[in-house]
Write a protein that binds this DNA or RNA. Structure first.
Length: 328
DNA sequence: AACGACTTCAACCGCCTTTGG
DNA sequence: CCCAAAGGCGGTTGAAGTCGT
């Protein structure tokens, strides 16, 4: 038993819009507005279209001052920065880019920007892997030299040729434990370190600071007395409602973390009447970006959380990293 | 020229939120 | 407060275009 459809599917045309349909819809809305009822609109003007389809067509294509394609570097940076801050809230991101629609930005992100950033990340990871391999080689050579020296010394002392039963004299961790993993692979893309992530982006973005990280600092430095207007200095185009949302978001996350509940359950973030719910399942949309900003060691952290294999304090800690928070 | 692989993007779908009675 | 209708949103799809062989 599914939800009732918004319109009579049988009598509704689907697929691409014809120029005639566009002209009908455009001229009607320009003269009369939408009338506050998209569902009734197509019947009024004799269009065999779903009301939702009309709304979408108007908002994404027919509306005046719409820009298509040709995204500038600056727009790329804004999109990336906001995506890192608030995730795939395309309508909010679109509100920061006059003339851009959420659909356009979503498509642009999925088809180009994501790949662009992934490409940058791969290059950096390759460079890191090569550096690590060099360090391992040097270590191996060092160990081999010491082994040879040790064998010679033992042979000389005992006159025994078969060395296989001899225990090495170097500390056990050299032969048993794996090489210690450099923390740099994790922290290099730590979201709490805005500089490191934004360095993946265009240099101009270095002047734009992650609003969530800024809030974190503001909360920490200001005893939780968060003032969006101060926080968003340097983020002039950021709408006050968004900064309010982000500020409240951060505060509630802090509250939840302190209470030991945050990490697995929903959080309602009230924003002057509107409610934004963040859930653990929603965070899966961050998977791609997680791989951009976290090392592979922790990129599957969502999955681990869902299996309950990570203690809650670790979850809270990782979430705080994710939101650029400072843990005490 | 023909074909398949890949990319792009307009449009749809279904879920959640908001609104009004 | 409850419910239904409408609005809004993000994820996904598939047709059309582009590219490489």
């Amino acid at each position: 038993m599914g939800r009732a459809p918004c319109c009579d599917k049988a009598n509704v045309k689907k697929g691409p819009w014809s120029p005639e349909e566009d002209a009908k819809l455009k001229s009607y809305i320009e003269q009369n507005g939408t009338g506050g009822n998209w569902i009734a609109l197509p019947q009024k003007i004799g269009l065999k279209r779903c009301g939702k389809s009309c709304r979408l067509r108007w908002l994404n294509y027919l509306r005046p001052n719409i820009k298509h394609g040709g995204f500038s570097e600056e727009e790329d940076d804004i999109i990336c920065s906001l995506y890192v801050s608030i995730g795939s809230r395309w309508s909010i991101i679109a509100a920061q880019l006059p003339g851009r629609t959420d659909n356009d930005i979503k498509n642009y992100w999925n088809t180009r920007l994501k790949k662009k950033l992934l490409g940058k990340q791969r290059k950096e990871q390759q460079a890191q892997a090569q550096a690590q391999a060099r360090r391992v080689n040097i270590m191996k050579q060092e160990m081999k030299r010491e082994t040879d020296h040790h064998n010679l010394m033992v042979a000389a002392a005992s006159g025994v040729n078969n060395m296989s039963t001899q225990a090495p004299y170097w500390p056990a961790e050299y032969s048993i434990n794996p090489m210690p993993v450099s923390n740099s692979s994790i922290t290099d893309y730590d979201l709490s370190n805005q500089t490191s992530f934004t360095s993946l982006l265009h240099p101009t973005i270095m002047n734009m600071t992650n609003p969530l990280a800024m809030e974190s600092n503001a909360i920490t430095n200001n005893g939780g007395n968060c003032q969006p207007s101060q926080i968003f200095q340097g983020f002039e185009n950021f709408p006050s409602d968004l900064s309010d949302f982000l500020c409240m978001n951060q505060q509630q996350i802090m509250d939840k973390t302190i209470d030991g509940f945050y990490g697995m359950e929903s959080i309602d973030i009230s924003n002057g009447g509107s409610t934004i719910t963040t859930t653990s399942t929603e965070s899966t949309s961050w998977g791609d970006m997680n791989s951009l900003v976290y090392s592979p060691l922790i990129s599957d952290y969502d999955g681990c959380c869902q299996q309950g294999s990570i203690p809650q304090d670790v979850v809270a800690f990782e979430e705080s990293r994710y939101f650029g928070m400072q843990m005490q």
